[in-house]
Design a protein around this nucleic acid. Structure first.
Lengths: 80, 80
DNA sequence: TTGTGACTTCGAGTCCGTC
DNA sequence: AGACGGACTCGAAGTCACA
């Protein structure tokens, strides 16, 4: 069973870890990924679900590949 | 530059290849992934963008990991 | 710097069908 | 079996203000 909320949390945690490891603010991440700062905040807190396009945008800013990002998300996700 | 339409096409092509390689219909894939048949068709044809949750659902049916699916999508995507 | 609430728009996602 | 259309619902996507 795929749980919506767990996926959101896993995604948010992963993005936050990658962002803080690069020592940049949500605002900077938002700017680099062409997203709104509020939206980035909501993604990190597992409030909203990211689309594939959003993932790709975040990957540009986080300097990682979508597949690598997904791998990290899987590690945060109970079920993989 | 991240192009919306290219991501959709890459995602659609990848899903279609995985599905046909398993010899199942769109209807069967929709059933296994708890998605609507029409929606699966639109995903495969690059008309609509999938969310992370949708990706996870599709992966259950396609018996693959999200990270592996993303890797295949990257290969279909000009820019990676 | 970040979280949140209010708001709007548009597309994700569902359900019905026909060709 | 798959493409496609209409008509929906609801949440993603995006903006702004404030604590």
């Amino acid at each position: 069973m795929v749980k919506e909320i767990d996926i959101r949390k896993a995604t948010g945690d992963t993005v936050r870890e990658l962002r803080t490891s690069k020592n940049i603010s949500q605002e900077k991440l938002a700017e680099l990924s062409s997203l709104d700062r509020s939206f980035v905040s909501e993604i990190e807190n597992g409030i909203k679900t990211a689309s594939v396009t959003t993932l790709f945008k975040l990957c540009v800013a986080l300097e990682t590949k979508p597949s690598q990002l997904m791998k990290l998300i899987e590690n945060h996700f109970d079920g993989y």
